[in-house]
């Protein structure tokens, strides 16, 4: 995995998408695409050869948890790294996301350092598993 990895950011707030995109650009990831909820993101994922998914939970249309489940249920996408970036902070929600197969969970408000750490950790685990 290199810096030309293809990211998809899914969040219903354009400002949050922009913040994440900026942070990713700062980390050297320039290939970033955006979607505003699971319903728009899923077909993009299916046809887009994405390397990494960063998604919010609470969105109109398809929420992030359902998107995660749909991704894990699709044989082509099942191994896609998924980072949840959300304000949802209930313990049972985090457990539910973990059970659904999330690779990382960052709660909002977050820092650039946290985002970098989680992305690096996920990519490291991928590299070790490969």
């Amino acid at each position: 995995m290199s810096k030309d990895m293809k990211f998809l950011i899914v969040d219903d707030f354009s400002t949050m998408r922009r913040i994440i995109k900026n942070l990713l650009n700062d980390l050297g990831y320039a290939n970033v695409t955006e979607a505003d909820d699971g319903t728009t993101a899923l077909p993009m994922l299916k046809s887009g050869n994405f390397d990494f998914l960063i998604t919010d939970w609470n969105m109109p249309g398809m929420p992030g948890l359902e998107l995660l489940k749909a991704v894990r249920a699709d044989p082509k996408l099942a191994k896609l790294p998924v980072l949840m970036l959300t304000a949802e902070a209930k313990r049972e929600q985090i457990i539910e996301a973990a059970q659904a197969g999330v690779n990382g969970y960052v709660i909002k408000p977050f820092t650039a350092v946290t985002l970098k750490e989680k992305i690096d950790k996920i990519l490291e685990q991928r590299a070790n598993a490969a």
């Binding site: 939970w57 609470n58 929420p63 992030g64 948890l65 959300t86 304000a87 949802e88 902070a89 209930k90 313990r91 049972e92 929600q93 985090i94 709660i107 909002k108």
Partner: peptide, 15 residues
């Protein structure tokens, strides 16, 4: 989802 935790409003186990 429940949205951001609001101090003094949300109950239940939150991180």
């Amino acid at each position: 989802g429940f949205g951001p935790a609001v101090p003094g409003v949300d109950h239940g186990a939150a991180v």
